[in-house]
Design a protein around this nucleic acid. Structure first.
Lengths: 225, 225
DNA sequence: TCAAAAGTGTTCAGGGTACACCCATGG
DNA sequence: CCATGGGTGTACCCTGAACACTTTTGA
């Protein structure tokens, strides 16, 4: 190692995952009650440390797999959080990521083993460290993206009703939208296809199930909701 | 330190600053030819290492002051770059920031002492490490922001002509805009005020000089160009 | 007198928004 | 038969886009 590097200090680098899922129609985050100090007893994002020989992105993916068993999940970096005292235990610079997972597919056992629970974003308990800021920034990034890129489908089942899709968008955007206008925009988009299947669980009448067609989207990546 | 932390490795944490300025009307970045290995001879963003007891944001501000003498500069975090081999010399995780500075105000001497030069973004030389990706992401973030928030004025003199402002926006957005439509939008915004001064350097006829009124903007923070 | 940049309005189309009622079904 | 969510069309407004000529003045 050259002189250039070795006069500088080294730091722990953490990753924190803001894992979004739709729990009974409610946009929720996987949180765990901390089992150890510092901030034992507060709720906390799922995190870990970057290992030797592991990229920061890979560390985040590893944390996600350890907790949910899911690979190839949609993830975005939220940013680095580097205040000196952000972790009262030790100096840790943390890189936050958000992930959008399909609620039907994750490994229940792993989540239980980590004492993690789904908490609705409308019902956040006190959180440790700077995790509230991480979540706020993640939600803002998601909000900016959801209207222009088809990321919302990562949160929905493969087949979904338009009411589910609209409700998800309303939650992410934080505002209601007109049902007819919403459906008009949907029907203008080739990449959202009606199937011949019907969902009978949400209403007596039943609602048509739709699916997102990635191939069509890739061929003509326009998207506007 | 608890067991929880101490089994994890520590890393150098770098900061890299993408310093934008308007050099003779050209959007440019301060770059330095690397004086030492690794990648000696290639061009490089201005960077440094996070020190003990210093936040990551503060490290970026320190690098900016060391190079330009400027404080209270507009800066945004671009993100963390954490690939294992991104720096061939040593494992360094780097957090990139972009800064928008007023070209009239920086300290020429400091820049010279660091062998830094302004290079137009249209004329980028080969850059070291993952600096091209950092610049690309910074430009994308700036592009997203410039139409909705008044950040462009950080790059302009206190008094500027509408032609200068339009040209800046065109450079950042990467597309030309109609002069009349642009000026119509400007005149709709109370926070951009015409002064009674005239710039005679850009044309024979002379162009009215405008200024950005931060107080008015803060009172009614709407902005749309 | 001419080159070079500053400055100025109108028209049109398309997208976005507002809005209310009937349908199908299970209980 | 009724409660519940599913599904549908139109009219208007307004924003955004296109577009060309006159003015000023230093050289």
């Amino acid at each position: 190692m050259t002189e250039f590097y070795k006069n500088n200090p080294r730091f722990f680098i953490g990753v924190d995952c803001i894992i979004f899922g739709l729990n009974k129609g409610e946009l929720s985050i996987l949180l765990a009650k901390r089992q150890f100090e510092p901030e034992k007893g507060k709720w906390s994002l799922m995190g870990g440390f970057v290992k030797d020989g592991e990229s920061v992105d890979d560390a985040a993916k590893r944390v996600l797999v350890e907790l949910t068993g899911l690979e190839n999940v949609y993830m975005e970096q939220v940013g680095a959080f580097g205040e000196v005292d952000r972790d009262p235990g030790e100096r840790v610079v943390s890189v936050a990521y958000y992930a959008l997972i399909n609620f039907d597919e994750y490994d229940r056992l792993r989540v239980m083993e980590h004492n993690a629970q789904w908490i609705s974003i409308n019902d956040m308990p006190p959180l440790s460290f700077d995790h509230p800021q991480m979540i706020a920034k993640a939600r803002e990034l998601m909000r900016q993206k959801v209207s222009h890129e088809p990321i919302g489908f990562n949160l929905l089942p493969k087949l979904f009703t338009l009411t589910q899709l609209q409700s998800l968008h309303e939650t992410i955007l934080g505002e209601t939208v007109d049902k007819r206008n919403f459906r008009k925009r949907i029907s203008d988009m080739d990449c959202i296809e009606k199937t011949d299947q019907i969902d009978k669980t949400g209403s007596r009448r039943g609602a048509a199930l739709y699916k997102f067609n990635d191939r069509i989207y890739k061929r003509d990546p326009k998207f506007k909701i």
